[in-house]
């Protein structure tokens, strides 16, 4: 099946927050279109509004100027057609793994039998067979995040939004879960929007990388990554793209972390 659903769009979106009474422009006239089935990554310094974009797409924040659309229809609130995975797994600590995934299906149209098999399939998809009965406090950070990804996918949404989901993990687990994400995306072809501060992760996974600059949050550049999958982290074309992205990012104001990266 060719993906026909799962497009996202922002048209001239401006989002202002008030922080201790003083106004803060999180997004300034941002326009962005995500194709159905595309893997889009958004990178940028903290405060560039990249997480705000995800919250608007998720429908968690409805107050903004401009239009935010899912398959052409305005987004007015959360929908089971759009899953969101946070940086922290945010599991219910009182439920074991399988019931945490099942909790996402409370308002699904599936019957009880279909729910059970959906839960089983998605636990298998993230490789957690054998841990169905484990409680969140018994899981490692990487395993807990896999549960969160399974929960984000179990409703079979058109879109999966990922807000730095691997940011808190150690390098080895992160690389492993990046491969898992790539495998899941190739298999499911769900539209994915990944916010990350890790340029390597962005070029490794995405079809296009959006570079944002902070204060106010604006799109600075959009870089296509046309390399075929599965990708090789050491591929020269990938490394050239990475260098290009780092140069672009370093040109954005106040980005000490990435400047260090470039020096290394």
């Amino acid at each position: 099946m060719v993906a026909t659903a799962g497009s996202l769009e922002m048209r001239s979106v401006t989002k202002r927050y008030s922080v201790d009474g003083s106004p803060l422009v999180a997004l300034d006239d941002v326009s962005l279109a995500v194709e159905p089935g595309e893997f889009l990554a958004i990178v940028g310094a903290s405060g560039c509004g990249k997480s705000t974009i995800l919250r608007l797409f998720a429908g968690l924040d409805a107050k903004h100027d401009g239009a935010v659309l899912h398959d052409g229809a305005p987004i007015v609130g959360p929908s089971l057609q759009r899953g969101l995975v946070f940086q922290e797994p945010r599991l219910f600590p009182w439920l074991p793994v399988e019931r945490n995934v099942l909790a996402a299906l409370r308002n699904s149209h599936l019957d009880a039998h279909a729910r059970r098999s959906a839960v089983r399939d998605h636990i298998a998809l993230v490789g957690l067979q054998g841990f169905e009965r484990a409680y969140p406090h018994q899981l490692s950070g990487g395993m807990a995040q896999r549960v969160a990804i399974a929960r984000g996918l179990v409703n079979r949404p058109d879109v999966l939004l990922l807000d730095e989901p691997l940011g808190a993990l150690d390098a080895l687990t992160r690389a492993h879960l990046q491969d898992e994400l790539q495998r899941i995306w190739v298999r499911e072809r769900t539209t994915m929007v990944l916010v990350t501060h890790d340029v390597d992760e962005a070029v490794y996974l995405a079809d296009r990388v959006v570079v944002m600059s902070p204060r106010p949050g604006r799109i600075r550049d959009i870089v296509p990554v046309t390399l075929p999958r599965p990708r090789d982290r050491g591929d020269e074309a990938l490394l050239r793209l990475r260098a290009h992205l780092l140069r672009t990012l370093a040109g954005t104001p106040q980005h000490a972390g990435l400047a260090l990266h470039r020096a290394a």
């Binding site: 968690l60 959360p78 922290e88 409370r106």
Partner: peptide
Amino acid sequence: ATLVEVGALLRYRRSQMLLAI
């Protein structure tokens, strides 16, 4: 508040928020 937000994403109604969160 972060778990309540998860409930909102999963479209929990008020009664579900009460009983499940």
